[in-house]
Simulated scan of single mutants.
Amino acid sequence: MCGRYASIKAPADLADEFQAVDATDGAVQADYNVAPTKNIVTVVERHPRDEEGTPDLDTTERSLRVVKWGLVPSWAKDPKVGARMINARSESAAEKPAFRRALNARRCLIPAAGWYEWQRGENHKQPYYTHYVDGSSLAMAGLWEYWKPKDDPDNLCPDGLVTATVLTTSAVGPLAQVHDRMPLVLPRSAWDAWLNPDASGSDEAVAALLAPPSAELIAAMELRPVSPMVNSVRNNGPELLAELAPADVAEPLQLDLLAE
């Protein structure tokens, strides 16, 4: 699964990296401990609309937008359900009522510096941090939705609510030693196909991207143990990314054996 990650690059830098327009309006800051229900940055690609709301089907615009982490389906009666929908399994998203419409028409990328996962042992729960060695952003595959209450007499939610979920898949290679699931991370070569607003979730190019990442992609990542400070959402700073000393790791991973 993916229940915590780091998002530390400035929106302007993310806009350059993802070739997108920055539409975040300064609404997010660097966050070393992104937790569910927080506002997060997503990358979406849509047909621009004129003042009357008519889309221009001949052009597309890729932009960074701020949404809330925890997908709320458009038909939900209560937006609190989003806290239970921070992840969607890539293997079954097309079949689940909460996710299938978004998979067909509202796919996004969720940039991350890296994500945290916990290795659970008999007497310990050791957090690990995974990121690209070269410092580039991970592009986690996501889905987004728009929700608006059907009855809002007090006008408490005039603009509606935009939310997102992170797709997950089977863990690959060394990552499987920590947890059996991981975020569905897409290579740069897949970004255009995934974000294409004219492709449905059943299109061959999109459906193929729901498979676990390649071994080559995983080989470009580093997996390291970090301090249990990340367990508390109150802790937030670069110290959360620091590698834990080997003597402080209860059950070190056998990374050298897997590399042979």
Rank of each mutant, 00 (worst) to 15 (best):
Trp69Pro: 09
Trp69Val: 13
Trp69Gly: 03
Gly70Ile: 11
Gly70Met: 04
Leu71Met: 04
Leu71Asn: 02
Val72Gln: 00
Pro73Gly: 03
Ala76His: 09
Ala76Glu: 09
Lys77Ala: 11
Lys77Ser: 11
Asp78Lys: 11
Asp78Glu: 07
Asp78Gln: 09
Pro79Tyr: 06
Pro79Gln: 11
Gly82Glu: 05
Ala83Pro: 10
Ala83Glu: 12
Ile86Gly: 11
Ile86Val: 15
Ile86Gln: 08
Ile86Asn: 09
Ile86Phe: 15
Asn87Ile: 10
Asn87Trp: 07
Ala88Val: 12
Arg89Asn: 10
Arg89Leu: 10
Arg89Ile: 06
Arg89Ser: 07
Ser90Asn: 10
Glu91Leu: 10
Glu91Met: 14
Ser92Gly: 10
Ala93Phe: 08
Ala94Tyr: 12
Ala94Pro: 14
Lys96Val: 04
Lys96His: 04
Lys96Trp: 01
Pro97Ile: 07
Ala98Phe: 08
Phe99Val: 04
Arg100Ser: 07
Arg101Trp: 08
Arg101Gly: 03
Arg101Phe: 00
Leu103Lys: 08
Asn104Lys: 12
Ala105Arg: 09
Arg106Val: 06
Arg106Ser: 07
Arg107Ile: 02
Cys108Gly: 04
Cys108Asn: 02
Cys108Ser: 02
Ile110Asn: 05
Pro111Phe: 09
Pro111Ser: 11
Ala113Leu: 02
Tyr116His: 07
Trp118Met: 06
Gln119Ala: 07
Gln119Gly: 02
Gly121Arg: 00
Gly121Tyr: 02
Asn123Trp: 06
Asn123Tyr: 04
Gln126Ala: 00
Gln126Asn: 04
Gln126Met: 04
Pro127Tyr: 11
Tyr128Cys: 00
Tyr128Trp: 15
Thr130Gly: 12
His131Phe: 09
His131Leu: 07
Tyr132Ala: 12
Val133Ile: 14
Val133Asn: 12
Asp134Trp: 06
Gly135Ala: 01
Gly135Arg: 11
Ser136Glu: 14
Ser136Val: 09
Ser137Asp: 15
Ala139Val: 03
Met140Asp: 05
Met140Gly: 07
Met140Leu: 03
